[in-house]
């Protein structure tokens, strides 16, 4: 019985680690390129997040299943090929069912292949752990990543257009900050958010 409770506790911890303690963007500083590039508005950010969750989940499952067959010097190549396959699936799916979104995201969907978070999780978790823990880990990390993207995108969309999810919420007199839609806004918002997270976590300890 004690053993069972232990396993459950470990699952919960792994799931929560991705959300805050080891949040991929704020804590590990991984996957910066999509974080900065697709967060001009909430919709593309959410789409991107879902794609990353899908790819990470599938690649973690496959890597975890073949972890005993991997040769050490070939493992990174195998990870990359697995990820590339699932990214192709996600990209074709988006092109077929969400053509507008696919156009907005453009090359950033295929660029998920070189997103460090997914390789990092394959290497650090899936290649060492059993299937169930790998799935939980992928979900935790993926949801953590998506939430971060959405926070950043929400801030930028409100300030750049006065709307969120394309619904206006700020009064009509609001002058949109055009710079927030540009690269400048992405870099500075993320920098300030990181500073906030640092300050908040320092107070806790």
């Amino acid at each position: 019985m004690a053993n069972e409770a232990d396993t459950a506790g470990r699952y919960k911890q792994t799931l929560l680690a991705g959300l805050w303690r080891e949040n991929p963007v704020f804590r590990l500083l991984l996957g910066m390129c999509p974080t900065l590039a697709v967060t001009a508005a909430l919709k593309p950010a959410l789409t991107m997040g879902l794609c990353v969750i899908f790819v990470m989940l599938c690649s973690n499952i496959v890597v975890s299943l073949m972890r005993n067959l991997l040769k050490p010097h070939l493992r990174i190549l195998m990870f990359t090929l697995t990820i590339a396959t699932f990214v192709t699936i996600a990209d074709l799916f988006l092109k077929a069912f969400q053509p507008r979104m696919s156009e907005i995201l453009g090359p950033y969907v295929p660029l998920i292949i070189v997103n460090c978070i997914i390789i990092c999780r394959a290497e650090a978790c899936a290649s060492k752990n059993a299937l169930s823990l790998s799935i939980i880990d992928a979900l935790g990390m993926g949801v953590g990543f998506t939430l971060t993207l959405c926070v950043l995108a929400g801030i930028r969309e409100i300030l750049s257009t006065g709307a969120i999810w394309e619904v206006a919420i700020l009064p009509a007199g609001f002058v949109p900050w055009a710079a927030m839609r540009m690269p400048v806004g992405a870099f500075i918002t993320l920098g300030l958010l990181l500073g906030l997270v640092n300050a908040a976590s320092k107070k806790k300890t």
Binding site: M182, I188, G191, L192, A199
Partner: peptide, 23 residues
């Protein structure tokens, strides 16, 4: 640099200002 902005945050803000220049 303020304590909580040291490291990555200030680098990102600097990069932001740099892109402003390149705009």
């Amino acid at each position: 640099v303020p304590e909580c902005l040291k490291g990555a945050p200030i680098t990102l803000i600097t990069a932001g200002l740099l892109t402003l220049g390149f705009m």
